[in-house]
């Protein structure tokens, strides 16, 4: 028992893979091609969790972004895309957290509470954020010039990036 298994924790792995599955299911509603890419990302994510490799997890994150872009460029629809984005970000976040917790505390320690709280916080933030973004998007869907939207986006990104901790 004194040995520590420095591998991603089991609760985190289970939650991450569930979120990955959810992402595939949501994308499959409107965009099968993106769903396939998302499935690939899920498999890479599972591989990263088995190997305990941060690099592979990041690769899975990259594939998720590609899947979401593909879904967006196709006709996935805003609601589906936002839901899939929540599921994908959640999957990567939980997986990466499971990796770091496993590295610190090992698989034998009971870390369910820690990881559930982490997952729940991320889920709440993403859900509220997606709701806000969706509401703004619906309200502003008029004939605004595209340059205005671009400038708005760049401005917000600059503002957020400049936020002090």
């Amino acid at each position: 028992m004194s040995e520590i298994t420095r591998q991603p924790t089991r609760p985190g792995t289970a939650m991450a893979l569930s979120a990955a599955g959810l992402s595939v299911l949501v994308l499959a509603v409107t965009s099968p091609a993106a769903a396939l890419l998302s499935l690939l990302a899920g498999i890479v994510l599972a591989g990263g969790l088995t190997r305990g490799s941060r690099r592979i997890l990041d690769a899975a994150g990259g594939i998720y972004v590609l899947a979401l872009l593909l879904g967006g460029l196709g006709d996935a629809g805003s609601e589906v895309l936002l839901l899939a984005a929540i599921a994908s970000i959640l999957a990567w976040d939980i997986a990466e957290n499971a990796l770091s917790v496993g590295d610190h505390l090992g698989r034998e320690t009971d870390t369910t509470r820690l990881e559930v709280v982490h997952a729940a916080t991320t889920l709440v933030v993403l859900t509220v954020g997606a709701g806000m973004v969706f509401a703004i998007g619906t309200a502003a869907s008029g004939g605004q010039p595209i340059t205005a939207v671009v400038l708005l986006l760049v401005g917000v990104i600059a503002l957020v990036a400049g936020l002090r901790r």
Partner: peptide
Amino acid sequence: TPPLLLLAGLGIVLL
């Protein structure tokens, strides 16, 4: 494509 802009919006929230 507006959905991708919404996606960027969600990204900004996360950021």
